[in-house]
Design a protein around this nucleic acid. Structure first.
Lengths: 262, 262
DNA sequence: ACCTGGCATGTAGCATGCTGCGTGTCAACG
DNA sequence: CGTTGACACGCAGCATGCTACATGCCAGGT
């Protein structure tokens, strides 16, 4: 129903509020704008907001029961992230899921995340190994419960832990942004052809290599994992639109066979 | 004086406007918000807005003679780009120029721009070579005139042309964002130790390799150029803050010795 | 039947009012 | 002289009024 997190918790009550249940800033995430960003992300993810369709800040604000300002700011942020596009005096459009776009994102992720994995392995302390182990276990548990959201959280945390250890905050932020883009674009990040357990299994070689301190092996394992995921998502996106997956897109994903050394 | 582009040209006249010259949307760039973004970028670049200082949307809006809304939106975008940081109920602060940050940006640029150069060379048509040649000539001319802004524009165009030919729009956007960050952070992107002519000369090997169709050579030349620039900027930033350049930061820039193949 | 022009409708974008909150200040008290 | 507490001030953030503009629709003309 496209709602923004609205616990009874009191927050700042601002300008006049006529009726209906009010939506306030909640302790954890503060800003209403951020909540709207999340709500819209989820709405796109769940298919409630469909690509190609025209929407308006006006109506969306009404549905969410917040004013237009935070909605507008949220949409501007999403527009910058490439998820929607404003059309002058018409509204904004949720962009169609383009296999090419996904291929580009994974091309980038490989370019960044593989070297980051190498760096992380090289500089890994005991904390990293433990964190990765925990996240992997959590992924397995979530897979057993078929709890996809929880699974995704830990999958994400696994990658984030490696990125954080890679000692380049900017890189971590960029990759996080890229991942957000695909998570929102992909109706289901875990597509039909892989079970959650399979995805979890793909992380094992990465953890093993990190534990062994073998940077090259870790990088290779990460590359295999990300490239595999990218290839599947490209194919999935292609299947949703035109039928066949463009070989050029698949090639783009796999083209990032970079070897980085220090 | 921190102004936003305000030609006499008429545009949409909105809400009540008391006095003073009005600032309107101009044909070229439309949105006031964007104009404010540019104005603030330049103000930071020129040192008019100093790092560490506290500013407020309120006052800035007054100085620019626009309302708070576009200023706020502009600052939010800059905050996302990492140039400023909002402090709750206090204002926003222009972030101090951190050598580490610059090193990270160049680490990223190397990771992305070197493979992109390889790709571009491989897929280069005659248009690319011509465009690069033109930009390089324009850079030389601007260097002769000591016209730094014009030089920067063509330098940027040179890199953009390569990125565009790299056939990954997303990558081009990310790199453009990274460059914007450093351009704004660096008081002067062309630092004291290199003349404009020297910088132009660094682009020659890149063009030559692209002309020759030698992808590896082009990539190597691009790496040398970007790494060199990064190293100088890191040193310059370090000199402005604490005295010595942290070897770790320099190392970070040079660590991106990646070799990518197809 | 086919243009054509004016008008109603809905929109993004800007201006501005309003509120709770963090912070500095200064006075009263120990 | 040090400590504390109330108060004023300025801020970000949200709500909302307002305007120009793009588009679709329908009437009137050809």
């Amino acid at each position: 129903m496209l709602r923004v997190n609205a616990p009874p918790g009191r927050g700042r009550a601002h300008g006049p509020r006529e009726g209906g249940q009010t939506v306030r800033a909640v302790a954890g995430t503060s800003s209403l704008t951020e909540q709207v960003v999340e709500a819209v992300r989820e709405a796109i993810h769940s298919g409630e907001l469909r690509p190609g369709e025209l929407y308006s800040v006006y109506r969306l604000a009404g549905q969410l029961n917040v004013s237009r300002t935070p909605v507008r700011e949220a949409m501007l942020r999403l527009a910058e992230a490439g998820l929607v596009r404003f059309e002058r005096s018409r509204g904004f459009r949720v962009l169609r899921r383009d296999p090419r776009e996904i291929a580009e994102v994974f091309h980038l992720r490989l370019l960044l995340e593989v070297p980051a994995t190498r760096r992380a392995t090289r500089h890994a302390g005991p904390g990293l190994a433990r964190a990765l182990h925990e996240e992997l276990e959590a992924m397995r548990a979530a897979a057993a419960d078929h709890d996809e959201p929880r699974f995704m959280r830990h999958d994400r945390a696994f990658h984030d832990a490696i990125l954080a250890a890679g000692a380049n905050r900017r890189l971590a932020e960029v990759v996080a942004g890229l991942r957000d883009a695909t998570v929102t674009l992909g109706a289901s990040t875990v597509d039909r052809s892989r079970s959650l357990a399979d995805v979890a299994a793909e992380h094992e070689p990465i953890l093993a290599a990190v534990l062994a301190g073998d940077a090259d092996a870790a990088a290779t394992a990460m590359r295999a994992h990300v490239a595999h995921t990218g290839e599947l998502l490209v194919a999935q996106a292609a299947a949703e639109n035109g039928r066949p997956a463009d070989p050029a897109d698949i090639a783009l994903v796999h083209e990032a066979l970079n070897e980085s050394t220090t």
